[in-house]
Design a protein around this nucleic acid. Structure first.
Lengths: 187, 187
DNA sequence: GTCTTTTTTTGACAATTGTCAAAAAGCATC
DNA sequence: GATGCTTTTTGACAATTGTCAAAAAAAGAC
């Protein structure tokens, strides 16, 4: 739980009262590789903090998987669309490694917003940061050639190659596994 | 200004005290077609509400313009990355039509967060909505063929074609103007 | 270790898209 | 209307990427 609060402090420093209130509402969760945190069709009512491990979020388009993001240690994770709208998720979140997470329900979090203004501020600030991160992902996805997108990926997150099967990376880059293999073969 | 508060009420109903505080801090701005709301290299310190008109946000990559979004009536607009980080904008925001906007500075808004919890809540909720809208844009941008992306665009926002030059639409879809022209020629 | 299954690579070919150049159409201004 | 200027279209060709099939490599199960 220390890692969770270390991460929170990086965004906004909380009073000890707010920290304790949060601590009471987070629950630890340990999941094995290959399992799903969220599957499409179900409403996602929880926000997760990934303490240890790796996940990916993907949707199914024409029977094929399209990976939208990879998540590693010390990030908040959820199926945001479902969490926000309370509608069934279109996204699947899968464990790429055995992972340790902390979860809090939307109802609990909303209750804390009323009790502690600073917790709502924290979440507002986290949304800001996550928004601009998503913007960056969007801009990179728009890069013209697959080679540029791949180069950008290994430049920004070189560790990804060692932790994620290439098939998922190709679906993240929006190309076929064959094309990714050919790009990699010419360095 | 009525439109601004109509829009706000759709997200979260404010007390009259909060509404008045907001009203005091928004300023009207009228800009002509072709002008820029924000240019790259400058810090964007304001959040804008577009009451009437049309804009686009784009970045410059290898000397070419890459349109990231179009903005029409009744949306909040800013160069989010710059507004949030207080760093120089990489994005340009250009007026596609003569437009009427309402602006509030980041400093003023931040001051209001401390005075009125509900205004910070409103902004938190707006971020949620804008986040999932950006997610949708991301997913659509990942569609395999340019034809699919074009079809999706005219299905979701058919009005766009009448208000935006095709050159900007092709740069939004990530294709050359020639390719867009050919896609359109076969309906 | 061997066997099985999954992932990655390679080859051949087709489809999609980009680039360059020129023509056509549209839009201002006079 | 005629005149420039910008946008859009069309043609020819090259580059990129996808698809299908099969081989090679890697990862798991026993």
């Amino acid at each position: 739980m220390d890692l969770l609060f270390d991460h929170i402090e990086q965004h906004y420093p909380l009073s000890s009262a707010a920290r304790e209130a949060l601590a009471e509402n987070f629950e630890e969760q340990v999941l094995a590789k290959g399992k799903f945190l969220i599957t499409e069709g179900r409403v996602c009512n929880h926000l997760y903090f990934l303490q240890q491990g790796a996940l990916r979020g993907y949707i199914t388009v024409d029977g094929k998987e399209q990976t939208n993001w990879f998540g590693f240690e010390e990030h908040f994770i959820t199926s945001f669309h479902s969490f926000i709208t309370r509608q069934p998720s279109v996204e699947n979140i899968q464990l790429l490694e055995g992972s340790i997470l902390w979860s809090i329900s939307k109802a609990q979090l909303t209750r804390l917003f009323d009790k502690h203004h600073e917790i709502e501020r924290l979440v507002r600030i986290i949304y800001e940061k996550y928004y601009i991160r998503l913007e960056e992902r969007y801009v990179n996805a728009q890069l013209r050639t697959a080679t540029e997108r791949y180069e950008h990926l290994i430049r920004e997150s070189p560790h990804i190659i060692e932790r994620v099967p290439l098939g998922h990376i190709s679906s993240y880059l929006g190309i076929s596994p064959e094309t990714l293999s050919r790009i990699r073969s010419r360095f």
